[in-house]
Design a protein around this nucleic acid. Structure first.
Length: 467
RNA sequence: GUCCCCAUCGUCUAGAGGCCUAGGACACCAGCCUUUCACGUUGGUAACACGGGUUCGAAUCCCGUUGGGGACGCCA
């Protein structure tokens, strides 16, 4: 049997990191088994759903590299079908009309809370005849759920979980305005879309029992469920929109790589022995939903940075370039010329092991492209002050240098150091200061080569001239 | 309050009764490498929440306690 998974976000905001991981697990599971991964937008809440959010979610998934199969399903467009199911159950006596007003129900819950009772619908309209209904009062349709016995789900992550039916109340399926609730819509859509495996956050676990009752009422097969634990913030508190949960586009802006995000998110709750760095391809071949842990995990930016750093080092410079160009341009406040782009590409290999993110890489590249004379930071200025005479000597030999490659330049400077009875570092550090304006940079001979003779000597001359 | 879920180093995790004097990774500390900073590399600090069982033997199974989390909407 071919499996079908789905990611079903509600478009009420950006795609946050927890949703991203849920999507990833659904995607991996489908790809691993050669099944389908579908996208359904749960926009039945007309007040809070926005087109912008739909776009943000799709962009987020695209950035994460999670491609879905087939057309996107918009849940609200299927409202008639949902209503049809509710009405069918009503006709079959498996659902009933409830005329209680929202205010009345709120009062009921208030009283239950005050009395220390479980808060749930008390079934006041469950067995009343329609003739008792007040005239011209809107009604909702509730599922007539079993009141005795128990409901069990065999969750692929949580195991077998059982709840007494007495704990569950009769859920609203159709609102007074005739629109379906989430509980109805998910079940009908998952059934109609032939979803075989429902993988979602474990905040849905308790909802699942009610949903199963609905499947049973319709005599539908129940899909396999997998409720994955939520991601918490660094302090252990729930990761919510007002508490550290960022949209995936924020991670993109911070300079993280999609493949690193996938790797990091995958390792949050899932592992395969001692493997840490797991390529997407390998993840697809190894992923198993039953191996997902049951405990919630904390989001750790430091570890993310480490994973990202790994992928930064592994990446081909050409692959990094397109993302780096606009970042450098922004920091420089201007577009790069073709020559500068070529220079940037040559500079990337030296920058890669020094950058955890694309943003850091762009910052590290800046000194190559800044116009003379370079601003020199305090530490670098101090180094220059100490060895200005050596820099002058270096300038002379560099101006005379004919073979402008890192290796040849190193030989030249080493020879000069020997001639002057100086340590290589005494020469390299002030040169670095002159060339980069900083005491920290990629290997100085690489910098020399990439800058080119004219620019390099110009920068050195600038500092030699400055008293 | 009711119901449900969870519990191994600071963090992410390996561990499915003996392979565990608990392994890996990040972070941290120390050494090495070295023209700086990184990278790399070597070593170190650091955990089975607690209490009872079951068993010849428990991180692994059972019960309880404590601590986290989630759900209880005409939101999704």
């Amino acid at each position: 049997m071919s499996i079908v998974t789905r990611f079903a976000p509600s478009p009420t905001g950006f795609l946050h990191i927890g949703g991203g991981r849920t999507a990833l697990f659904n995607w991996l599971y489908a790809r691993h088994l050669g099944g389908k991964f579908l996208l359904r937008i749960e926009d039945t809440d007309r007040q809070r759903s926005t087109p912008d959010a739909v776009e943000a979610i799709m962009k987020g998934l695209a950035w994460l590299g999670l491609d879905w199969d087939g057309e996107v399903v918009f849940q609200f467009a299927r409202a008639h079908r949902h209503a049809e199911v509710a009405n069918q159950l009503l006709a079959q006596g498996r659902a009933y009309r409830c005329y209680a007003t929202p205010e009345e129900l709120e009062a009921m819950r208030e009283a239950q809370r005050a009395a220390g009772q479980p808060v749930r619908y008390d079934g006041r309209w469950r067995d009343r005849d329609r003739s008792e209904a007040p005239a011209n009062t809107p009604f909702v349709i509730r599922l007539k759920a079993p009141q005795t016995g128990e409901t069990t789900i065999n969750d692929q992550v949580q195991g077998s979980v059982t709840v007494a039916n007495a704990q569950l109340d009769d859920m609203v399926m159709l609102r007074a305005d005739g629109t379906p609730t989430y509980m109805l819509s998910v079940v009908v859509d998952d059934h109609d879309m032939d979803i075989t495996h429902v993988i979602r956050g474990d905040d849905h676990l308790t909802n699942t029992f009610r949903q199963v009752q609905l499947y049973r009422a319709m005599d539908w097969g129940v899909p396999s469920f997998a409720h994955i634990p939520l991601i918490h913030g660094p302090d252990g508190a729930k990761l919510s929109k007002r508490h550290g949960a960022l949209g995936v586009e924020a991670y993109e802006a911070m300079g993280y790589l999609p493949e690193a995000m996938r790797n990091y998110l995958l390792r949050l709750g899932w592992g395969h022995g001692d493997e840490e760095m797991i390529s997407t391809e390998r993840a697809i071949s190894l992923f198993d939903i039953t191996a997902v842990g049951r405990a919630p995990s904390r989001f750790d930016f430091v570890k993310l940075a480490n994973v990202n750093g790994h992928y930064m080092k592994e990446a081909m410079p050409e692959a990094l370039l397109p993302a780096v160009i606009p970042l450098v341009g922004d920091k420089l406040g201007r577009a790069l010329t073709e020559g500068e782009t070529a220079l940037l590409l040559r500079a990337i290999p030296g920058l890669q092991p020094r950058a955890k993110t694309l943003v850091e890489l762009a910052e590290g590249a800046l000194f190559y492209l800044k116009a003379r004379p370079l601003a020199v930071d305090a530490k670098a200025a101090a180094v220059l002050e100490k060895h200005r005479d050596l820099v002058s000597q270096a300038l002379i030999v560099l101006q005379a240098q004919s073979d402008w490659t890192a290796d040849a330049l190193e030989a030249t400077i080493r020879a000069l150091a020997e001639t002057l009875s100086a340590k290589l570092g005494d020469l390299a550090q002030p040169l670095r200061a002159a060339l980069t304006g900083s005491t920290v940079s990629p290997p100085i001979f690489d910098v020399l080569e990439i800058l080119g003779q004219s620019e390099a000597c110009g920068r050195i001359a600038d500092v030699v001239a400055t008293p």
